[in-house]
Simulated scan of single mutants.
Amino acid sequence: MDLDPLPVPLGEDARSVLPRLRRALDGGGAVLPHVAGSPPPALPRFAAAALPDDLAVVVGTSGSTGTPKLAMLGAAALTASAHATHERLGGPGQWLLTLPAGHVAGLQVLLRGLDAGTVPVSVDLSTGFSPTAFAAGVRRLDPEHRHYTSLVPTQLVRLLEDPAATSALASLHGVLVGGAATPLALRRRAEAAGIRVVTTYGMSETCGGCVYDGRTLTGATVRIDDEGRVHLGGAMLAHGYLGRPDLTFGSFAVDPDGSRWFRTDDAGRVDEDGRLHVDGRLDDVVVTGGMKVAPRPVEEAAVEHVPGVREAVVVGTPDPEWGQAVSLLVVPEAGARPLSVVEVREHLRGHVPDHALPRRVTAAGAVPLRGPGKPDRAAVAALFDVRG
């Protein structure tokens, strides 16, 4: 089986790869997408004869647990993901591409276009993401179709600060938001503006999002193990990692009945209504004074209850007394008054447990990112300039 590098241009030329993606889905050789102008991912040694029969796309993971891996996605899994997405959103439609299609979230926008028989419209990202370019992209969508887009939370924040972009967002039939946790306050702000937000959870190993607003898509399944770890299963699962059977064995499991599961690195719980709540990565948990603090509830509380905070990221930083100190990075709104640690703690008191109140606070103009919209927590921790 062939495995061809597929450079995907930014902007309107991204749709030039649609014929090659269609051929890959139809069994005409797998592709390795990457952003045009950057080198394709380095390939490990692999036996071509051992590749899965329906392999269509090999896509890099975000590398959040170390060296990035290459997930092998089959045509059946990608098709199941696109079908289930359109089913959940109310029917096929035309998509606006706002993300680099070398990553799974952007690539899925192109694949959903193939599933719907529509040609996506692309936002020009060559000079960065712009609310003005986004609004112009929405105007180019065909009025004969339903309209969708996929964003990361930082993009949603920027669009909500621009009246024209906010109005354009509100005209869409569905706005997927994923790639990183979406603070509840941000979602409420978007919904108050009339935007149909759908939060997504998933990863490269599940063909992107497979849980929407806490509920699995058709064909997807979820379970939580005894340590609170999220496992995902069903039709959207990758075959494994290219050239790394050891990593495949460690991350994918098969039950006696034949069902396959992917072992995520996330902590979560399923409520009595069957809705999945993800509390963050297990290795992001801050252990302070012997108590565990999940970052996400503190981040959401900071955005909702601390005045002038637009975005927030919590990390643990070394502390001689507590082991780790809960450390809060905030991105302030324009013109917001700087707040002391004491003031931040008072605003958060009663909204998070006392042991989760931040002991260090710093501000930055933007959250350091890794991959499509994910906070780079190591870079955030470095902003505090403390040593153990």
Rank of each mutant, 00 (worst) to 15 (best):
R139C: 05
A105I: 00
G373A: 11
P68M: 12
P52A: 01
T127L: 04
R140G: 07
G371M: 01
W261K: 08
V211L: 13
R112D: 00
D53T: 06
F46H: 10
L159E: 10
G113P: 03
V314Q: 07
V152F: 07
A302Y: 08
L10G: 14
G90S: 08
V58Q: 10
P153L: 00
D255Q: 13
A116Q: 03
E227H: 14
L159W: 04
A185Y: 01
S122P: 02
C207T: 12
G194W: 03
P338A: 06
L160T: 00
D283S: 01
A294P: 09
P131W: 02
P183V: 03
V121A: 00
T65F: 06
Q94P: 05
V59E: 03
S62G: 04
G209F: 02
D53Y: 09
G102R: 10
P338I: 01
P39V: 05
T199A: 13
T206H: 03
S64Q: 13
R377S: 12
L186M: 09
R275D: 04
G117S: 04
M236L: 11
A363E: 15
G219N: 11
G37H: 10
L114I: 12
L151K: 00
L21F: 11
A220R: 05
A84D: 01
R215L: 14
R275A: 14
D26E: 15
A116L: 04
L73F: 12
E346K: 06
G137Y: 01
D26A: 15
R223L: 11
K374Y: 02
P153D: 03
V287Q: 07
A185H: 10
G137Q: 04
A49V: 06
R337K: 07
F262T: 11
E161G: 15
V123M: 10
Y148K: 08
R260D: 15
S204Q: 03
P358K: 05
V104E: 00
A192R: 15
G91K: 02
H147V: 01
H231F: 10
L18G: 02
V298Y: 10
A71H: 12
R275I: 13
G102I: 09
R260Y: 12
E321H: 11
G214Y: 12
H355M: 00
P320A: 11
P338Q: 09
S38A: 13
L172K: 00
G214M: 06
L242Y: 13
G102T: 13
G373R: 09
P44M: 02
V197I: 15
A30W: 09
P100W: 00
S251P: 08
G234V: 07
H347I: 08
P100S: 03
V341F: 10
H231A: 07
A253W: 07
